[in-house]
Nucleic acid binder design. Sequence first.
DNA 1: ATTAAATATTGCAATATTACGATAAATAAA
DNA 2: TTTATTTATCGTAATATTGCAATATTTAAT
Lengths: 109, 109
Amino acid sequence: MGVTRSDLFTEKQNEFSKVAKVFGHPARLAILEYLLKSNSCICGDLVEELGLAQATISQHLKELKNAEIIKGNIEGTSVCYCINEEKWYEMKMIFNELFDRYPNPKDCC
Amino acid sequence: MGVTRSDLFTEKQNEFSKVAKVFGHPARLAILEYLLKSNSCICGDLVEELGLAQATISQHLKELKNAEIIKGNIEGTSVCYCINEEKWYEMKMIFNELFDRYPNPKDCC
DNA sequence: ATTAAATATTGCAATATTACGATAAATAAA
DNA sequence: TTTATTTATCGTAATATTGCAATATTTAAT
């Protein structure tokens, strides 16, 4: 066993968790924060900045791209990465939708 | 190797990713959503509701509790779980802090 | 055409996560 | 005290993730 039972959950729950999982690694957060302050960068910048191996950075970039959180534009031999604006706002929205569902006043045990 | 290089990242990044990781499984989202609508519940409710084994639910509850996202109060033979209000608002805040860091107007590649 | 530069992919080892049956622990009810 | 109820923990198997060296791929420059 040991395989996530996606069949038991809603499409929304599976989608949300997939996005959240991308935030669930400090290297990917560091990449996003670097992109937030620099607007765009190439893989090599991140290798220098973060101190992880090039292959590792590339892998994290791939996951961020798969989740559509970032976009990559080929520019010569390098790839210029930046945050995907649409997805960013969509994420902001769905996270807030969740956070705002907390009942107020609450009545806890 | 294969062990996360927490030493390379900031305390904030490591903490944030730890919280995000908890959101990164549909079962835990389902648990939180159930708690949001019912205000409180016991482990058995979730076993029925979600269809995962009791041991599995208990494990997910443990992770949610470790992350301080939920609290558990012993009531007889059962444990009443509910959302930790303080942590909930704290999470809302730190996620929004991240999302709001997106530069506008942006200048992408 | 060669060489250089940048990124992606492959292959592998280490570690972490997920799931569940079995069992333990703790309290309530009889 | 015995039994029932509820949750936690243990043990284990399957799967997923992380990291990096080595290599492949792609385009630019010479």
